[in-house]
């Protein structure tokens, strides 16, 4: 327990120090890398909520990541061209306001997660993994052929959206925004995992009968968890789209679902801060291994394999003891 806390604090401090040093020494690219890690961490935290606490292995979280991205892309695109998104049943204008975009991203991906979850949770185990993958693929193919918003080419948004009082195009300021969002999400998820809902969810994962005995249906617990999970990953998608000033169907691809899963597993399933450690390590690996060889995916694969086979419980399992904090 204690070790895990030190690791959490160290991690948060590290994620703050690296970009600050980069800022002082005028190496803005490292700020971009850190921002990327923070955003991926948020996506992973979203998945971890369903996977780590609820035991729901979703292989389709790219759907929510992409929806968040397209929420940003579509709103900003319409703001750019001064056209309404739709006029019926109510008028929705485009927007360049990050706060509004986040809200839309959260609502849209939560609704999608609610619908997908309601259907998928009728299955369990491998069937659940595969049906979530199928929903992800549906979004992928739909976005490729939906030419209004660029299809496979995606939607470039030339300038980052606006945040009151900040210049979002400045890497360090955009990093600050993402870091604060990460912190808020971490607090929120920590609170939820300690709440009676969180406790019940984890109890359901271990033994569904125990929950039924106290009058709760596991199905509705899982559904709420899946919806929250989708909403958080959707928010990460919106942030990611703003980082790149670009959205495209690749955000929906099953590789993205796999990568989000990797962040969670690398960090340690069920640890609140796990995905942050996982995403940071993944980005670092990508960045350093890329320098070694044209065939760096081989090294990445070998490393991941090593992590699965020899360090059960990911980074947190390695450094902060085996047992999961909330069991």
């Amino acid at each position: 327990m204690k070790k895990e806390m030190y690791l959490n604090i160290g991690l948060m401090a590290l994620m703050l120090v690296v970009p600050l040093v980069a800022w002082v020494s005028d190496e803005p690219f490292w700020i971009t890398l850190a921002t990327r890690a923070v955003i991926f961490a948020i996506a992973g935290i979203g998945l971890n909520f369903a996977l780590g606490f609820g035991g729901l292995v979703s292989f389709g979280h790219a759907a929510f990541f992409g929806l968040g991205g397209y929420a940003m892309g579509i709103l900003a695109y319409h703001a750019q061209t001064y056209t309404p998104v739709f006029e019926w049943p109510f008028l929705l204008e485009g927007s360049k306001s990050m706060l509004l975009i986040w809200l839309v991203a959260i609502v849209v991906s939560a609704l999608a997660a609610l619908a997908i979850g309601a259907l998928s949770l009728r299955t369990t185990g491998v069937y659940f993994i595969m049906i979530t993958l199928a929903f992800g693929q549906m979004f992928y193919y739909f976005s490729i052929s939906w030419s209004t918003y660029g299809g496979e080419d995606g939607l470039p948004i030339y300038v980052r959206n606006e945040f009151p009082g900040l210049n979002t195009m400045d890497p360090i300021q955009y990093f600050a925004i993402c870091y604060v969002v990460l912190t808020l999400i971490l607090i929120l998820v920590h609170r939820m995992s300690q709440s009676s809902f969180g406790m019940m969810l984890q109890a359901a994962r271990q033994n569904e009968k125990r929950v039924q005995a106290v009058g709760q249906t596991p199905y509705s617990l899982y559904l709420v968890a899946f919806t929250i999970s989708g909403a958080i990953t959707g928010l990460a998608g919106a942030l990611f789209a703003d980082l790149n000033r670009f959205v495209s169907p690749t955000m929906f691809s099953w590789h993205v679902s796999g990568e989000i899963m990797i962040f969670v597993i690398l960090g340690g399933v069920g640890r609140v801060f796990g995905p942050l450690a996982g995403a940071a390590l993944y980005i670092l690996l990508e960045h350093t291994l890329g320098g070694l060889s044209e065939y760096w995916h081989i090294y990445l694969g070998a490393l991941l394999l090593g992590v699965v086979l020899f360090t059960r419980g990911g980074i947190y399992g390695l450094f902060a003891g085996r047992e999961v904090a909330h069991d």
Binding site: E27, P28, F29, T32, L33, R36, G154, P171, F240, N244, R245, F246, S248, T250, M251, G290, E294
Partner: peptide, 21 residues
């Protein structure tokens, strides 16, 4: 020379790096 892996977000990130760093 850098590899974009045919991923748009990687290409954007590399362009940032080439311009900024």
């Amino acid at each position: 020379i850098e590899d974009d892996q045919r991923k748009p977000d990687v290409a954007v990130q590399l362009a940032d790096k080439m311009i900024q760093s």
